[in-house]
Nucleic acid binder design. Structure first.
Lengths: 189, 189
DNA sequence: GTGCTGATGTCACAGACTGACATCACGGCG
DNA sequence: CGCCGTGATGTCAGTCTGTGACATCAGCAC
């Protein structure tokens, strides 16, 4: 078949997560990751822009998914509900791999540099949702605020889901509860 | 007086902003900054943990200010109003230096690495507010959501303020309007 | 004046990233 | 069948960030 072992990209990601969990993010060098994947450091950087990105480059284009889901909502849907629907769709994807999400999050939470990257990824998803809302005719600052509020609900719901030892509810349930709480809170309660 | 020129820290910050505006963040090396401040690279790192931090280490402890302002609110104040009051206080400080804020923001917006740092600083302020709310007896996830919602309103309001060419309103006004919009939006409008 | 302190300088170094060039299996094409 | 282009990878040299260890030196206390 191929001249090289297949799926170099996937091997790099798997090697990275293993090593980050074993020794921590800082203590792991890119050369270490590449070696475990049977590649060189230079090749790592051909697949991932930097050392952190290996934890954030998923196979799915979440930006497009969010934009499409918002665009697909009925014209009469309120902006906040369109955002909730889009995040529910994304939540359905993550929901399928709770343990994987927990391992990944353990690595991220242990390192401020990784937290930074996580936050800018979330902000980028929020910006994509705000764009999609503007395409529906929602004006600023409403579009930005709605998207940011949605991201806030998702962040808190995701955290609750990850830390829920009982596994009683799925991610969408937790996020949905956060939307409800957010509505209560901004109503002054 | 002193053996060295005074205020090495301030000189480093001033030199950094100048150079970032002149040549961009990436094109400026830490050695460049230190040289313009009449110091060495090693001394730069004694004052700032990394190259980005020189843009974010202000003289005021905003975490403490937010926490104290929230703690000072009447017991009967709703969480969202306590958060709004705290952010209004912080807004009053930034308000005093609109042009400085604009220059700084121009540098930050031009570089993703700086945007990452800005986001984690904001998230950290949000966490401080959430802590202050919990100290008032607000439970999670309400505390986290309220703080995050406040940060969202502040972010959007700050951006509007920076980009408002008319200078017609102050920062607090823009943030306050965003809080109102946020309340409308989460009510489904 | 002696010695301590704190800010700075000097030096060496690991590790993140980048540009330029070399290698080499595979697939197409004559 | 053999040549050749292509794309993924390897090799190498280099810049820059960030850190540890040690040296320097003005001022201050005693």
């Amino acid at each position: 078949m191929g001249r090289w072992e297949p799926d170099a990209r996937g091997r790099l990601m798997a090697a990275a997560i293993e090593l980050f969990l074993e020794h921590g993010f800082e203590q792991t060098t890119v050369a270490d990751i590449a070696a475990r994947a049977g590649l060189t450091e230079r090749t790592f950087y051909r697949h991932y822009a930097d050392k952190r990105e290996v934890l954030f480059a998923g196979p799915i284009d979440l930006h497009a998914l969010l934009a499409e889901t918002i665009a697909a909502q009925s014209d009469s849907a309120a902006p906040i509900d369109a955002v909730a629907a889009a995040l529910d769709t994304v939540g359905g994807l993550l929901q399928q791999n709770r343990e994987g999400s927990r391992l990944r999050q353990r690595v991220i939470d242990a390192n401020p540099m990784l937290r930074e990257r996580e936050l800018i990824k979330l902000a980028s998803l929020g910006a994509a949702m705000a764009d999609a809302l503007r395409a529906r005719g929602v004006t600023d600052p409403t579009a930005s605020l709605t998207a940011e509020a949605g991201i806030a609900a998702f962040k808190v719901g995701f955290e609750t889901w990850i830390n829920d030892a009982t596994d009683a509810h799925d991610l969408q349930h937790h996020v949905s509860e956060c939307f409800d709480q957010l509505k209560a809170v901004t109503a002054g309660r």
